[in-house]
């Protein structure tokens, strides 16, 4: 569950930009349930028609490895749900502006 019980749980959003590509992590959002998370994902992350297919998954359902497995002191808090992966899409054309 979310760290704060008043808050809708956190979801991670993955979008397939076009056919033939993998789903890519594009960001996060909050939603009360899976169905609403899909709607929110469409509204928040495909406003400019970026995606043809969307996956959402609750952040607390993601299992993650630690970045450096040899590290004996990897903080126990590393398993906490809020330490979720986020914003893993780095566009090819990082804008120079």
């Amino acid at each position: 569950m979310s760290a704060d019980r008043r808050e809708w749980p956190l979801y991670e959003v993955f979008v397939r930009g076009k056919r033939g590509l993998n789903h890519v992590h594009v960001g996060s959002l909050h939603a009360p349930d899976d169905a609403m998370a899909l709607r929110h994902a469409r509204d928040v992350y495909t406003r400019r028609n970026e995606g043809v297919s969307i996956w959402v998954v609750r952040a607390d359902a993601i299992a993650a490895s630690s970045p450096d497995e040899k590290d004996p002191l990897f903080a126990p808090s590393g398993d906490k749900v809020y330490r979720h992966p986020t914003f893993y899409d780095i566009p090819d054309d990082v804008p120079h502006m």
Partner: peptide, 8 residues
């Protein structure tokens, strides 16, 4: 009520 609904 929340940012997601604001956007919707």
């Amino acid at each position: 009520p929340d940012l997601e609904e604001d956007i919707a």
